[in-house]
Design a protein around this nucleic acid. Structure first.
Lengths: 212, 212
DNA sequence: GCATCTATCTGAACGATGTCAACATAATCT
DNA sequence: AGATTATGTTGACATCGTTCAGATAGATGC
């Protein structure tokens, strides 16, 4: 039974602690940064004891991975949205790249957590395999943009290169040494776009059409 | 006074603790990974008490930055070496990119520490400003490769794009999902090279010479 | 309805960590 | 030599990740 009618009074059993913990982690990440993201802080934020999370996650690491998974889902959604917006426009793939970088720049702590998790395990996990994943969207967009879908190796390389470049830009776009250049170019988005356009798949084909 | 004639007996004052701590951090990073890199572990490795480092570094963070700086120096050296090897070869810049990625892949823990430090402060610090830094070498190599040195913005963008791409490739080249592709291509280096060649500055100009 | 089983949460504890203050020792300066 | 400064050590504190024994509650079988 509840001890009081207080709206904040939780029953002994939380009901959906698992989800609540992930959301709490997300919140802490955004508001206080990665250093503040301790298991105990997450438990506090969710209003439970420090030991409670261990009934839902084996590790702090496993909690972080759950938070990261949530991030990958959102990234995938952002990419899907960017792709759906103007699928036939000339720079459609570039828009996807820009959306990727924007997501990372708007959620820096989340993004770093996502990649730390991936790098530690040396795999991006299931995030790439889902049909609706960002990776799949990128690959399909590259095909739609006229890449030779039959040369599977070249297609894979182009997709991976695009992903690598976007990741690199995402992590470095915030560096202070670029501030004046960004200002010159009219903000961060044009800067990011220009950077991405140095990569094959993102490249604007300026005067004439594509190579062959 | 020394308590024994033991060869390991150090005097009360270490002599060059600052350097010893950085080296100890480096060693721990390589042999036991980033999670094992605690201030106390570094002090233990150097044979001093846990509080001793505070006379040389304000923070754990500051120690890490010193380790990172050491890494940047080595990266710069690796790039300089790659550049000096065959400065006039057609793919000279690409060799630099490959050297960059190889360094990162051979010292993964160091490399991650370097970038974590940079990302936390949102700057690469002095590492880019030194005349002998890797960044400067890249920029010069790009000019030598025939870029329009007078268009400073485009030159800067090309350099930054190259750096971003190399960073992205460096962090992702180890992912397990690429293993079969790497095997197909004859190892990690050809794979890395192929990825980099999707980026403008690194691009092989296949049949005819450069654009104009 | 009631007893039991299982999932979930709490409390107290452990060792490790980053950091600090008080003190000890050595090198340096006068 | 004596004073000052740089560099160590010891011991303490709060916090952290983690574990374990016990409390509580929802589910299940009778």
């Amino acid at each position: 039974m509840r001890e009081t009618a207080n709206a904040l009074a939780r029953p002994y059993h939380h009901g959906d602690l698992s989800r609540a913990l992930v959301q709490a982690g997300r919140r802490i990440l955004e508001s206080e940064g990665p250093t503040a993201l301790s298991l105990r802080a997450v438990a506090r934020e969710a209003g439970v004891s420090p030991a409670a999370p261990y009934h839902h996650f084996k590790d702090k690491c496993e909690l972080l991975e759950a938070v990261a998974k949530e991030g990958w889902r959102e990234l995938g959604a952002a990419i899907a949205k960017a792709r759906a917006t103007a699928p036939d426009a000339p720079g459609a793939i570039t828009n996807i790249g820009v959306a990727y970088v924007c997501f990372a720049r708007e959620n820096p702590a989340l993004y770093r957590t996502m990649y730390k998790s991936a790098c530690d395990r040396e795999t991006m996990g299931d995030h790439t395999k889902d049909a609706d994943s960002g990776f799949s969207h990128v690959q399909e967009a590259i095909i739609e943009a006229g890449a030779d879908g039959s040369n599977s190796r070249e297609l894979a390389l182009a997709t991976i290169a695009a992903w690598c470049a976007a990741h690199g830009v995402a992590e470095m776009a915030g560096f202070k040494e670029f501030e004046s250049l960004k200002a010159e170019m009219g903000g961060e988005e044009p800067f990011v776009r220009a950077l991405l356009e140095h990569v094959g798949v993102f490249a604007r084909k300026p005067r004439r059409a594509a190579a062959e």
